[in-house]
Simulated scan of single mutants.
Amino acid sequence: MSAIVAALSSSAAGASESSEPPVLVMYEKVGMSGKQVTFNGPVADIDVRYPFHSTTIKSGRWEICTRNDFKGACMDVDAGTEIVSLKKEFGFFARVRSLRPIEEAAPAAALAEAPTQPEIISAPVIAAAASADDAPVQPVASAEAVLRGHSAHFFKTPMFNGKAIDAGDKGAAKDFCREAGFDEVEFADSVLSEGRRVVGDLLCTDPLVSP
C-alpha cells in the first residue's frame, strides 16, 4: 500500500502568513503511539485501514466525528489537547471517520469534489498485509452486556478478528485489554463454545495513559 499524499486546502493557502495552519496528528494506538497520520485540512471520508486510538492537536481547533461527512458523534478539540484513548471518549465500537478544522468548515458537497487527504509521516511506509495473519488485530466484543465505567470495561465473549479468545492462552486476554486501552485483566472466566474453552466474561481495568 503506497503512502497517502497530503494536500493543503485552498482556504489554508489563503490564510495570513502570521496565523499558524491547523495541524492534527492521529495515532494507531492508545497513548499517542504506533503509526502516525497527520492532517492539515478537512477530510470527509478517512481512508486508512486501521482505526485511530489517540490524537494530538498540534494547532488550530478541530471537529472530530465518528461518521463520514462530519456526522455522527462529534467532538470539538483545541490546540494542545491530547486524547490518549479515543474509544474512551466515543465508545468502544466507534471509529473516527471524518474531521476538519472548525475555522475551515465547508459544506460536505464541496469537500466531496476535492477532499483533502492525510499524509502518512511515520516510517516505514505501510505495506499491504502478506496474509490474514499479518493484518492488525482488532478487539471486538459481543453487542450484549457490555458495561463501561470510568476506569474499567466489561466484555461478554470478547473476540479478536471475529474469533473468540482461547481460554488456554494466558496472554490473549491481556492483549485484548491492551488493544482496548486498558493495562490489566481484573477478572476472566471461560465458557464452552463449539467444543473448546474460550474467554466468556472479561473485565479490563487500569486505563493506559502513556505509550
Rank of each mutant, 00 (worst) to 15 (best):
residue 69 D to A: 09
residue 143 A to F: 11
residue 66 T to M: 00
residue 58 K to R: 11
residue 120 I to W: 10
residue 116 T to F: 00
residue 141 A to R: 12
residue 80 G to V: 02
residue 56 T to H: 13
residue 129 A to Y: 05
residue 107 P to T: 04
residue 119 E to F: 05
residue 128 A to D: 09
residue 27 Y to H: 04
residue 39 F to E: 07
residue 30 V to R: 02
residue 113 E to N: 11
residue 44 A to P: 07
residue 51 P to R: 00
residue 119 E to H: 03
residue 51 P to Y: 04
residue 119 E to G: 07
residue 67 R to Q: 15
residue 85 S to M: 08
residue 84 V to W: 07
residue 90 F to C: 03
residue 54 S to I: 01
residue 123 A to C: 09
residue 41 G to P: 04
residue 93 F to R: 15
residue 87 K to N: 12
residue 63 E to L: 12
residue 129 A to L: 08
residue 69 D to V: 07
residue 27 Y to E: 01
residue 87 K to E: 07
residue 49 R to I: 08
residue 27 Y to S: 00
residue 136 P to Q: 12
residue 123 A to T: 14
residue 136 P to F: 09
residue 50 Y to C: 03
residue 65 C to R: 05
residue 104 E to D: 08
residue 73 A to D: 15
residue 131 S to V: 02
residue 138 Q to C: 12
residue 79 A to N: 08
residue 150 H to N: 15
residue 89 E to K: 11
residue 101 P to T: 07
residue 68 N to R: 14
residue 97 R to K: 15
residue 92 F to S: 01
residue 96 V to S: 00
residue 54 S to E: 04
residue 126 I to L: 15
residue 143 A to S: 12
residue 36 Q to N: 05
residue 57 I to R: 00
residue 63 E to I: 13
residue 115 P to N: 11
residue 38 T to S: 12
residue 39 F to T: 01
residue 91 G to I: 06
residue 61 R to A: 03
residue 92 F to Q: 10
residue 95 R to N: 12
residue 125 V to G: 11
residue 31 G to V: 00
residue 71 K to Y: 10
residue 77 V to S: 09
residue 148 R to H: 13
residue 139 P to M: 04
residue 62 W to T: 09
residue 70 F to M: 11
residue 106 A to V: 13
residue 113 E to V: 14
residue 103 E to T: 15
residue 106 A to H: 07
residue 115 P to W: 07
residue 75 M to D: 09
residue 42 P to D: 06
residue 96 V to I: 14
residue 42 P to S: 10
residue 120 I to N: 03
residue 143 A to P: 08
residue 141 A to F: 11
residue 46 I to T: 03
residue 137 V to N: 01
residue 47 D to A: 15
residue 73 A to V: 14
residue 62 W to P: 00
residue 141 A to D: 09
residue 61 R to Q: 06
residue 67 R to S: 13
residue 101 P to C: 05
residue 34 G to N: 01
residue 118 P to N: 08
residue 55 T to K: 06
residue 27 Y to W: 00
residue 62 W to Y: 02
residue 151 S to A: 13
residue 65 C to Q: 00
residue 64 I to C: 01
residue 96 V to P: 04
residue 78 D to P: 03
residue 65 C to T: 06
residue 49 R to G: 06
residue 139 P to E: 00
residue 104 E to R: 07
